[in-house]
Write a protein that binds this DNA or RNA. Structure first.
Lengths: 206, 206, 206, 206
DNA sequence: GATGAATGAGGATTCATTCAT
DNA sequence: GATGAATGAATCCTCATTCAT
């Protein structure tokens, strides 16, 4: 597993960053491994020393993104209790942070799966399923408790995730909206989407 | 304007279909123009007779998609009255139908803008803005009338559109869910997202 | 023989002019028959209606150049008497006028022979030999009469022709030097090269 | 500067020779880079490893020709004294040797400038101007000293250079005339063209 | 551990040319 | 007589990758 022992040599990191940018700008098929090496100020042969192929580089990139996202998700879930609403907010925050992170990483995760080989594809699909299930579990729990009234929990989940994903497409860190603002808004939006109805709101807010 | 006089020669249509599939499967950069021609059962030189370059082919493809989407949107809006809720539902139906349409067309619209030249990029951006504005206008109207209570109409709009867009990624026409079902669900979801509160609710719910 | 009945239809002339320019700018191999047609404002198929191939077009071009050059040479020779010096001056004038004529025509004559097929190559070589022989005959006559003292009439001839040919490379009609000035200078130079020594110079100059 | 550190790897040299021949036979536009590689017994990709483009290959070729010509010119000038006549003869010898050298190199220098990019074009133009100026300086010096009586030193210079250049077109090393003979003849011819009149001729001829 | 040289396959595109209309 | 459509071959060049050093 590459994610248990993340490769953090300077060469690796420079290459991953360069690859992220190139892939994001031109797509996997359009990116040139030469340009990636040059962008990382690394010799072409050195790139092949680190990563055996273009696909492997893509996989490492996507995998590393997943590492980060998983880490943030787990960390944030650790700061909240059992309340599904709170947990959903934590997951939304993690996803917004991820999609608002280093340019490109995020879009790649969405579109360049097809460029992976079958094994790597399956591996990442599995990791993605884990991330999806974190949402599913929380939403299902909320529904089970009667806190989330949405009649279609699956569509609600997909909507929430899609909305967060889309952030990568339009939000810019140097724009008027801060990431924290975004987190607030999308947390709230997520609760709207699942049709959150808190219990005993009177007592709670007193 | 290519959209006023759509090129519907058999060669054009076969090439657009083939290009749609290839681009969808491999990405613009990864697709081979040779393979596209072969898939369309057209000679390579004939392809260049129709479309001057790979980029132009992509542009024609995306532009044609926009033609269809625009057409459906306008048609469906024509079937409803002034009620923003109805109009929003019409727009959602149009988008769901579009995203559920021919495989690929839809995803391309989302990711391969970068592969266009500056002019074509701008041209499609403009068309996309028109489509976005249809949603914006309807949502803003609903908010102005007090029918939509969402505090963040922009995020609501983005969420609705992102949710519909995502359909292209997971929904399959041969699956358990019909497109009509999807339209119902996402129309309802959209109203949830904008926090629709119909007037005279007292009478209705009594 | 194309030179006895020169094809002077408007289409022909436009194509020859366009071809002259394209060939001159890009060389025969580098020129595109499409660009030539476009430059002549003639459809590609029309070009092929006039000239059966790229080579044929080149041949017609070179041949037409030869027509003009031959014509001028013969005309000018007709205006002078038997004196080899006068005749040499006439030939130089004809050649300078030709090399100073429509851009390109002239350079082509020098370099693009190789691009012709064997037959056309031979045909033009023969015409070129005729032109060369006009110089040879005049110089040999001058030498025989003791008017031209050059010990190497062949080299003298080549030098004179080369000098005139080179005019096409550096002289511009819109520059400071007029073509008539050039004719004077190169006539004189030619006489220098053949080491002209007029007879009875005493009487003449008295 | 490529001329200070001439690339003399075997691959480079083989490619330059092959390119010289191909370009000479077919012209720059008509030559195929594949054929050049094949002629040099080098893989196509290796060619591109050495020279980034067809143009670059042409430039290297012309540049190398200039290197040789410059070298010979300077060397031969070093063997003579200050006498303009002697110096002119040295320059003529250098040019005749160059034009009589490896087939093609020479013709290319004359016609394929147009095929270079603007920068390379300018670079070679500059080198060519240096070579031209060597002639100009010597001829002007001869005129200033009253040794060369030509009334048009510029035309004389152009004529001498054109005559020597033309050698590449007709002279063959395996013909009846040796290069040394040619050198003698053209040196003499050059002095005729500048109308050389040695001082104290009476004493010398007595 | 790192690299410059080398390569075969394939990239997009343009070529001169033909032919049905 | 004139042309738009179509084509197979060839264009220059770049690709991801390997290997001797």
């Amino acid at each position: 597993m590459t994610n248990t022992a993340p490769p953090r040599s300077p060469g690796h990191q420079a290459l991953l960053a360069a690859a992220r940018e190139e892939f994001a700008e031109r797509g996997y098929g359009g990116a040139s491994i030469r340009d990636i090496a040059q962008r990382a100020a690394v010799s072409l042969a050195a790139l092949y020393h680190y990563y055996g192929s273009k696909q492997e580089l893509l996989h490492a990139l996507l995998d590393e993104g997943m590492d980060v996202y998983d880490q943030v998700s787990v960390d944030l879930l650790g700061t909240v209790g059992d309340d599904p609403a709170e947990r959903l907010e934590a997951l939304v925050e993690a996803l917004v942070r991820f999609r608002g992170g280093p340019r490109g990483s995020s879009q790649l995760e969405l579109t360049e799966f097809r460029s992976l080989g079958p094994e790597q594809h399956a591996a990442l699909r599995a990791r993605q399923a884990v991330a999806t299930n974190r949402f599913r579990d929380v939403i299902d729990a909320g529904v089970a408790l009667g806190l989330f009234r949405t009649p279609e929990p699956d569509d609600a989940r997909r909507t929430i995730i899609a909305a967060c994903n889309a952030i990568a497409q339009w939000w810019r860190p140097d724009g008027a909206i801060t990431l924290d603002t975004l987190i607030d808004r999308y947390s709230s939006l997520a609760l709207t989407v699942v049709e959150y109805r808190p219990r005993r709101i009177r007592a709670a807010r007193t």
